[in-house]
Computed example of a mutant assay.
Amino acid sequence: MKKIALLLVFTIAFNVVSAQSKKKQILLLGTFHFENPGLDVAKINTFNVMSDKSQKELENITNKIKKFGPDKIFVEWNYQKQAKLDKFYNKNTDSLLHKDADEIVQVALRSAKKLGHKQLYAIDYNNTDFPYDSLVKGMTAAGQFDLIKRNEETMKHYETDQNAKIAKYNLTELLLDINTKASNDDNVNWYLETAIKGGKTDNFVGAYLVSEWYRRNLYMYALIQKLTESKDDKIMVLLGAGHTAMIREFVEHNPEFEIVELATVLK
């Protein structure tokens, strides 16, 4: 009898530890901006996600996301305007899907509605600086002409490469490509290999720009963690690929989460 009781205690203890060690799955879905406002440094052509072909792809993509089954979906919307996002989410879905090309509508809202979610979660933090013009001026003042050339070549290569893919790939292929390790590395490398060097030795304009970018993404990551409850087994984060590439680094150091690759979800 004592052996049975002891075995029962061990079994309960094992189950508790197993439950506590179970990692939450996080799908980091990086994307280009479907409605490109031209505000990014690199100028990328607009891809028509409203075409019949792309809309069929979006139905397939979001059906696959539904099958993955995230308990919450986080989006690039100012966290201080959650009430506005809630109101937006409750608008006529069919009307939004036919008129609004934004990825929050076409991917996040479409997926959330299929999953029966009551809301999307706003996590963007916009109270940061991105002094790109000051960075270029700092490079010039420091006589960093090789760095300026490298920066210009990097931007030009990125624009040419992305625009060529937009002309060649379908929507699914574009999203898969932008979520590869190579793409994620490219998104991070510019900050840590080029931007950070900008300015004279007593001018940290480059490091400041990088730190502000990290701060914005760290604050978003903090909100992801705060809003993810113990009952949530799976979550999805839909952000510009530059954000997900950075957040990926943070998640990789968090033993509570495991990253689920988009290619696995869409296979």
Rank of each mutant, 00 (worst) to 15 (best):
M1C: 14
M1T: 08
K2S: 12
L7M: 10
L8M: 14
V9N: 01
F10R: 10
I12Q: 13
A13N: 07
N15K: 05
S18R: 00
S18D: 08
S18E: 06
A19P: 00
Q20W: 10
Q20M: 07
K22M: 05
K24T: 06
Q25F: 06
Q25G: 06
L28H: 02
L29M: 09
T31A: 05
H33P: 02
P37A: 08
G38R: 12
D40Y: 14
V41W: 12
V41L: 12
A42K: 06
K43T: 05
N48D: 11
S54G: 00
Q55C: 12
E57W: 04
T62C: 03
F68I: 00
G69Y: 10
P70G: 05
K72N: 09
I73F: 02
F74W: 05
F74H: 06
V75M: 10
V75A: 10
N78V: 03
Y79Q: 15
Q80K: 08
K81H: 14
D86L: 06
F88A: 07
N90W: 09
N90T: 07
D94C: 07
L96P: 15
L97I: 02
H98T: 15
K99F: 14
D102C: 08
E103M: 01
E103S: 06
I104H: 03
A108C: 14
A108D: 06
L109H: 07
S111Q: 03
S111C: 04
K113H: 07
K114M: 12
L115V: 00
H117K: 05
K118S: 09
Q119H: 10
Q119S: 13
L120M: 13
L120K: 07
D124G: 08
N127V: 10
N127L: 13
D133R: 13
D133H: 12
L135H: 03
L135S: 01
L135V: 01
L135T: 01
K137L: 00
G138P: 01
M139G: 04
A141L: 07
L147Y: 02
N151S: 10
E153M: 09
T154N: 14
K156V: 12
H157R: 02
H157P: 06
E159R: 02
E159Q: 03
E159H: 03
T160H: 08
Q162W: 11
Q162N: 13
Q162K: 12
N163W: 04
N163P: 00
K165P: 04
L171G: 11
T172V: 13
L174I: 11
I178Y: 00
N179M: 14
A182L: 09
D186Y: 10
V188T: 11
N189H: 11
N189E: 04
L192I: 14
K197L: 09
G198W: 02
G199S: 05
G199C: 03
K200M: 15
T201M: 10
D202G: 05
V205D: 04
G206I: 02
W213Q: 04
M220S: 06
A222I: 14
L223S: 11
L223W: 04
E229T: 14
S230F: 11
D233K: 15
I235W: 01
I235G: 00
M236A: 05
A241Q: 11
A241P: 09
H243I: 10
A245W: 11
I247C: 06
I247D: 09
R248H: 08
E249P: 03
E249N: 11
E252D: 13
P255L: 01
F257N: 09
I259C: 15
E261T: 02
K267F: 00
